[in-house]
Every structure is written in structure tokens, then in C-alpha cells.
Write a protein that binds this DNA or RNA. Structure first.
Lengths: 221, 221
DNA sequence: CCACGTTTATAGGCTAGCCTAAATAGTTAG
DNA sequence: CTAACTATTTAGGCTAGCCTATAAACGTGG
């Protein structure tokens, strides 16, 4: 039989998370990483040491971590697997938008290149996941179209939703319920800085959205 | 994020293996189990104790283990997941027969009922895996058509290959190379008891096969 | 420029799964 | 009935990942 389990799955979670957080800041504090992964800062520090040893990340003491070239490539390949599974789960298995992220998190570590390459063929080489995030190619490269977070827009601004990032279950299910998806055109009707609420119009319907949710919505610049 | 990994995957491997071995003998010795899983007898004993605690198996000291009703159901559901993934990998992703078993071993633990139910629909409710083994239904029930191991046949016997069981990479790749699959008609031309070799004719072609391989081929009675 | 908050390190501990070596208990054949 | 073999237990150890509590190092605002 011989099925080695668990070997380095955590490491993959770490570099994937670092890769995603790097989009916001070049140097990711370990504490940020820890809270993103729902792990104690001490444990995160330990793990960071391990993956530094493996040459996947660089650590600037008291500043944060950054992926090495090897690490970045590895992280992008995990993201690739994740987003391909998401496409499969939504397009082929017709599973709900808000479920596929968590499900893909479990599948992304399960199989390697052979299956993923076959999956790419099967899915006709998709270029983005159902939430609008680009799928890296087999070299780990991808293109990220410019956008700004919805919460930085002001009254009267208009745009088209590019993607939801980062993805998290509660945000996605909120958006699914409101039928807010990539591709939708929106305009900002009102910004309430005091309560941190935005009133926006999407597809002609007015919606009220909080800051936290808005920060996950990336709009074409 | 919160993705619990590894939790009880080993236990699933154990009960799956016991379930498969139970077809041959009602009471599976721990040593048999251990060698099937490629694990030391001591470790297997430890794990057996754990799954006895969980009420999944019964252990008769010095005799062997047997699945409880709960355990049997759980084991069959793992087998179900395994075989459905095998079908997906061969039918949809066009991956080779001999690869899909090991790949499915990694996928079978990754996701639960939601994905599996959707997969069943997507695959049009298949009734067997690519190697001819039946896929249990969502209650863990299945039908096993009667058959005998090829190595028990004598000269002149004829039959149709029902399934390859148990599945293991080396056996499957040997058979793939020889194009021996379920559904093929065969007749036994010669049995060499001394060397343990069988000469059989499959689809009009003569093939020489060893005892070990033959014991994995189940032929319609 | 120094106290305060943040970041990291140290120490000690836990669980799941695996390992080997050696002791013991049970089964069976001669 | 006992020797030989097999099955199991005991003892001791390992790694990966996580934890808490505490201590030390750093960097920055007043």
C-alpha cells in the first residue's frame, strides 16, 4: 500500500497563506500569518523556522517573512491546484460557490502534477477560479489585473467586480446570498465612515455592505 | 481558514483494509493487516486497540479482528469514495488504469458526503470501479458477484474476468501491460504446479502468469 | 531616550502514528 | 506434553504539529 499522509501539508498551508498575504504587504509579520491560519504565534514561529530551513521563505527578525523564489513557485503551484479544484467543484459538480473554497483546501494537498495536468485538460485550461482569482500556470506564473478594494472607493465611484480576495467562507456565503459575483457592475451610492457601512448599487439593486466584507471585494481600477 | 488535517485518516486505512481482507477470511489476523498496510505488527496492534475503543472493530485475542456493524459501514463508505474517485480519474481524466488506485488512496480521505454525492451524479451512478470492484451505495451496501481466484482453476477451465482484487500497483501495471481487464474471456491452457505458473489464453492470445498475480484475478464461477 | 507594546525565543507538554527490541502468552504439531 | 512458532504486550523512543506560560529582545512614540 504505502500511502504517506500529512507529509508537509502544513508547510504548504503556510506558504500558500504567505503568498496570498504578500499581495497586501511585501513582508508578512508572523503574527498576521498566525492569525490567518488560526494558529498560535509561537507555533507559527516554529513552523517558519522549519520552512526557512527548507529554503522556502526568508525571515527578517521582528519584521516578517517573505517567500524565496523556490517558495513563491511552490506557493503558486498550491494555489494553482486549489483554484483548479474550485473550478471543477463549481463547474462540473455544481457545488455552491461558498462551499468550494473549503473543499478545495482539502483537495489541494491530495494529489500532484499528474492529476492536476489531466484536470487542466479536462477543464479546458481555465484562467481563473470561480471567485475571479487567476490560476497560475504550471510554472507558477500568473497575471493579476489591477484593482482596488471596494472599501477604498468613495461616493459616486463606479467599477466592475474583478475578484473576491482573500476568500473566506463567511464572506463568500454573504456574497452568494446577495448574488454579488465577479463581473458585476457596481456604483457607490453612499459611504458612512462612522459605522463603516457602504451603500452600493449592483445590477440596479441597492445593497448595504460592511467594511470587512468590502475589503474582500476587488474592483477594476 | 481552519482546515483540520490528518484526523483519523489512518483509522480509515485500517478499516478499509480490514473490510477488503474480510472477503477472504472472516477473522483478519493483525499480522496480515500489518503486512497489508506495510506497518509493523506492533503498530498495527496499537492502532487496532484505538479503533476497538472507537467501536469500529472487535478483536479476538490471538485470532484476529472483525469489523463491527458501524465499522463495516464506515469501511464501505471509504471504499465507495475510493472507487468513485477511480472512476473519475479513469473516465474523465483519462489517467492510466494502474495509476488511479494509488491516486484514489489520497483522494478518498480528502472530502466527505457533499462532494461524493455530487460526484455520483456527475459520473451517472457507476456501479463498479475500473478494476471491476463494486461501488457500495450511500448506505454502504453493495453486491459482490460470485467468483473464484484464477490460481484455483485447473487446466481446461474457462471463465470471464470479473475483477482484480485486491488492487495493488504492481499487479495492475503488469495486467495493463498485458491488456488483461475485467470482461475478458479466458481459458486455462496449462498449470505448472512446480513453478506456480499458469498458461492462459485471453482473447485468443497466450499469456504466462505467476501464482501471485493470478491470485488477484477473480473469474466468474 | 526610555517605557510600552509587539515580536520572538525558551521551556515544558501534549497527541497521533510510527519504530525496534525484548518479554510473554497462546496454539499446534510431533 | 512440550518445543517451536506465532501473536501480543511492554518498554522506550522518534517526528511533526500543535499548545501555554514566561522571558527577553526590539522599535517607536511621547
Amino acid at each position: 500500500m504505502s500511502v504517506q499522509l500529512t507529509k508537509g501539508e502544513s508547510a504548504e498551508m503556510y506558504i500558500k497563506a504567505i503568498g496570498e498575504l504578500t499581495l497586501e504587504e511585501a513582508l508578512v509579520p508572523i503574527s498576521t500569518l498566525a492569525s490567518r491560519l488560526g494558529i498560535s504565534p509561537v507555533s507559527a514561529t516554529e513552523m517558519v523556522h522549519r520552512i526557512v530551513e527548507q529554503g522556502l521563505v526568508e525571515h527578517e527578525r521582528y519584521k516578517g517573512v517573505r517567500l524565496t523564489e523556490t517558495g513563491k513557485r511552490r506557493a503558486m503551484l498550491v494555489l494553482r491546484r486549489h483554484r483548479l479544484w474550485e473550478r471543477f467543484l463549481t463547474d462540473k459538480l455544481k457545488l455552491p460557490w461558498e462551499d468550494v473554497h473549503d473543499l478545495a483546501c482539502r483537495l489541494e494537498h491530495a494529489v500532484g502534477t499528474e492529476v492536476i495536468d489531466a484536470l487542466v485538460d479536462f477543464l479546458d485550461e481555465p484562467s481563473s477560479c470561480p471567485h475571479g482569482n487567476p490560476i497560475p500556470n504550471s510554472e507558477g506564473e500568473f497575471e493579476y489585473s489591477d484593482g482596488v478594494q471596494l472599501n477604498t472607493l468613495r461616493q459616486g465611484d463606479e467599477g466592475v467586480i474583478l475578484r473576491i480576495h482573500p476568500e473566506s467562507r463567511d464572506v463568500l456565503s454573504f456574497l452568494a446570498q446577495k448574488r454579488i459575483k465577479p463581473g458585476a457592475a457596481l456604483s457607490v451610492i453612499d459611504v458612512d465612515d462612522f459605522d463603516g457601512l457602504l451603500t452600493i448599487s449592483i445590477n440596479g439593486v441597492d445593497q448595504i455592505i460592511g467594511q470587512r466584507i468590502a475589503s474582500h471585494i476587488v474592483v477594476a481600477a
